[in-house]
């Protein structure tokens, strides 16, 4: 009996702690949105972040998209050819890429690359008193540090996801048609016929929301870094892990929700 109480207590403590953290992430998010409208946007900061996030992440994102599309097409071909369903490979690949693989994998990689960079940068600014120096110069850190990062990621993620989709579907085509010899015209026709614009909308909405999650969690972690160099490492790891987990969990509910919204009739 004792262990059950102990476990329940442990679970309760973890749960309340998570709720508290989630609460302060939401507060930070609200503060970011408010600062975004209340202060002048710092374009130079935004460009710098857009360059880092949008341009410099392309290789990672395109590689992810390409090989996900390729491997998925291969797997689908292995299974579908047994039933003589080669013609369904195209739409299967493209719908899976749009609805799940594209946004989820692309944003998981962004969490690893961009989320980690944000958390590391902000937390090292925090521990070397640079955040305090900013405050001492009368600048609101949310407005100067968080808003540009947040905006840059939220703008870049859907675009990068779009690129990942295009390369993924393209590579799927290449693998199915050029390597496994599926009829190309047929493949393409079916892909176009069965992929709805709603599928693309789902990809963009998901990546947008994932970007909000990554930016909010990474910035929150970075700004609340415990003192000391060890804090930076811990903060960075936790930011990536938490953002990735939150992203995967939210993905499930978002999928159900979007399905209900977009396909209600």
């Amino acid at each position: 009996m004792g262990w059950a109480v102990y476990l329940a207590g442990k679970f309760g403590a973890v749960f309340t702690e998570s709720c508290r953290t989630a609460g302060s992430v939401f507060i930070l998010l609200g503060d970011t949105l408010r600062s975004m409208v209340q202060y002048r946007i710092r374009w130079d900061q935004l460009w710098e972040q857009m360059y880092f996030i949008g341009i410099r992440s392309q290789v990672v994102v395109l590689t992810t998209g390409a090989f996900t599309g390729a491997v998925f097409a291969a797997q689908v071909w292995f299974q579908f050819k047994r039933f003589g369903m080669e013609s369904a490979i195209g739409p299967t690949v493209s719908i899976a890429m749009c609805r799940e693989l594209g946004p989820v994998l692309c944003c998981l990689l962004l969490a690893g690359r961009v989320g980690a960079a944000m958390a590391a940068e902000l937390s090292s600014m925090k521990i070397t008193e640079q955040v305090d120096a900013l405050r001492a110069l009368g600048v609101y850190p949310t407005e100067y540090l968080i808003v540009p990062r947040f905006l840059a990621l939220v703008i870049s993620a859907p675009i990068l996801t779009g690129l990942a989709l295009v390369t993924g579907i393209g590579c799927g085509y290449f693998v199915a048609v050029k390597i496994f010899g599926v009829d190309g015209a047929y493949y393409w026709d079916n892909t176009i016929k069965f992929t709805d614009s709603k599928d693309v909308v789902i990809a963009l909405i998901k990546s947008f929301i994932f970007a909000v999650i990554i930016a909010a969690i990474a910035c929150h972690k970075g700004m609340n870094c415990p003192p000391g160099t060890a804090g930076v490492g811990k903060t960075t790891t936790e930011a990536v892990v938490n953002a990735s987990l939150a992203l995967l969990i939210v993905n499930f509910f978002l999928t159900v929700l979007l399905n209900a919204l977009l396909y209600s009739n």
């Binding site: 070397t128 008193e129 640079q130 305090d132 120096a133 001492a136």
Partner: peptide, 9 residues
Amino acid sequence: MLFQGSALF
């Protein structure tokens, strides 16, 4: 304010 650890950006 001059910070003890400089705190340059």
